[in-house]
Design a protein around this nucleic acid. Sequence first.
RNA 1: GGAGAGAUGGCAGAGCGGUCUAAUGCGGCGGUCUUGAAAACCGUUGACCCAAAAGGUCCGGGGGUUCGAAUCCCUCUCUCUCCGCCA
Length: 423
Amino acid sequence: MLQLQVLRQNAQAVKDRLAKKNFRETNLVDEIIALDDERKKLQLESDNTQAKINSASKEIGQLMAKGQKEEANKRKQEVAAYKNTLQPIADKLSETEKLLNEKLVLLPNLPSEKVPAGKTPADNVVMREGGNKPTLPSDAVPHWELIKKYDIVDFETGAKITGSGFPLYKGKGARLQRALIQYFLDYNTAAGYTEYLPPLMVNEATAYGTGQLPDKEGQMYYMQADNFYMIPTAEVPVTNIYRDEILKEESLPVKMTAYTPCFRREAGSFGADVRGLNRVHQFDKVEIVQLVHPDKSYDVLEEMVSHVENLLNTLELPYRILKLCGGDMSFASALTYDFEVYSAAQQKWLEVSSVSNFETFQTNRMKIRFKGADGKSRLLHSLNGSSLALPRIVACLLENNQFAAGIKLPAVLHNYFGALSIS
RNA sequence: GGAGAGAUGGCAGAGCGGUCUAAUGCGGCGGUCUUGAAAACCGUUGACCCAAAAGGUCCGGGGGUUCGAAUCCCUCUCUCUCCGCCA
């Protein structure tokens, strides 16, 4: 959620930046400012009336103590009159506040200066590539055939148990998931991230905090009986750890990592792009989240990018890093880098991580603040990224490292997996 | 699931209808003393709305009673104790 004061300070600049994100309803900005003016006016009226009620009530107490009942009764009538005028003001005030909030949450975050212009994924800017694309044998096959050959993921049985898009990992496939999770968490904690294992279902307030509600309701699985949502990413419960808190400046930066399964309904997705592990309803992911001083967030963003990049390097996978253009960025982000790995048999780039700076967009909703040296509270900046999402990493590992007798695994996984290869 | 108790400032904890602008203790910050520190003593110490002042709001959330609510009533959420069930 954008800060009102930012809109008020320079409405035109806000509109220009929203346009960069392909956001067309810029008249919302003016509507919001008008509503805020209205709100202030009503607030003042309400405060003044309330002040009169308060002082009259105090007098009544004093008059009663002195036994001056008649005078007290006169005051009571005055208060009753004030309350009659207060009621409609208070109603209008809360109505205005509600409307203001409803409109405010419709505005996406402002893209940072560094965001390239553009409308579609084709306009994203490739920052750099790393790793080597392998030369595959002529009989190389995509991962959905490899998983059958080695019997490590069973989609049919997953569909029997739950439904399509719920993979059942088996034997070495299950072991590989565990090895990757363990390795990623070790890698993150070695870099100073504190490990968490959060709840996998969240309440409404939490889903609202990171921006899944009110808009993206349909993307989450919903438990009607208890009004809980299955998390689409660990970002949701982990960032909410500090909701409504004011941190001490010396406790910054807050660095957190968590492994969780992620649940996504992704209604309407089908076709070749979703074959095999490319897109599923339940998948494993290790996430990193940071809460940092506003002056440092863009340095931290770069630091997180190289953190993820180094992790991909150790997996010996070919990758590229994209800076997303305005039109392809998420609603909440101010600047996003996507990581893609090259899946050699599909001859496709697959997104495995997205690292973003949200600036104050999330922390404003969640009221995550810190107290500066001047004693004033300010909003922190929040950032997060995948480190990493598993299914597409697995797809890529399988496809790129296939040879006649099996799948070679990168050295860094040997101990975690307990073998050099899958056969 | 059943019965009971509770939710107050960073923490502990008093207040149970009108100087609550919330006692007191701890912690934090500043000072006196000290070479420095500790101890002792003195002072200070939350958040939010408003450009600011004035003013207002906030004692788990929401609603109500009352001229007036931290205090009384209803409701929801959460915590604790006991019982039941359970990996």
